[in-house]
Amino acid sequence: MIKVEEISKSFDGIEILKEISTVFDKGKTNLIIGQSGSGKTVLMKCLLGLLEVDRGNIYFDNEKFDKENISAVANLRKEVGTVFQGSALFDSMTVLENIIFPMKMFSNTTDEEMLIRAQEVINRVDLKDADNKYPSEISGGMKKRVAIARAIVLNPKYLFCDEPNSGLDPKTAIIIDKLIQEITIEYNITTIINTHDMNSVMEIGDKIIFLVQGEKVWEGNNKQILKTNNKLVNDFVYSSELLRKVGKLGG
């Protein structure tokens, strides 16, 4: 569980996040949604510690995230898996080396044990015949699978995904969403996904927070989002022609 308490963040005097408070539940896929420029990525970077908040607190399983406490931050980092928007695979490494990398850095297991674990996660994300290929030689969907495999290889307690299905075709996007949801339940981890894709919202939105210009304006789940009277949420949700029609049909 990750608890966020009134966090704010400004850049050059412009407030990008305005006193956001929420709780991201364990074993659930928690979605941060909103239009481009609403502060989703900044919120995620603050949670990851890549940006420092101006005010407010972040708690990982009731333990306060304090950037000054270097050893606590280092320990926490080992419990976090991250899937970046562009996958952020290391270009100079093969798929297998990318997946093994966190183990090489942080575990004391033997090469053989690392290979066994890497093969487990490769099978889990259903990645076939790509072990010795470089990131430039595989498709966007496969890159996401590698990024997910690398993120879960150390059995993290928290999984962060920044727009995990951006640039993917709708079918692959749903497969990746489902994969993240299955892994969340299977490993009982706190997953936070940053997205503006309504398919993801409807498919895997166990918990959703909606941001508008850095402010949290709504919180709920994928069932409640279709029934809410919040105009800002409705404008966002029904910006898609398909969902507008579904909404009119009462679906």
Partner: peptide, 17 residues
């Protein structure tokens, strides 16, 4: 620089490297 723009450095940092 390419590692920076493709978030590979961010990936290293969130891993604790």
């Amino acid at each position: 620089g390419t590692m920076r723009v493709t978030e590979q450095i961010d990936a290293l940092e969130v891993m604790g490297v």
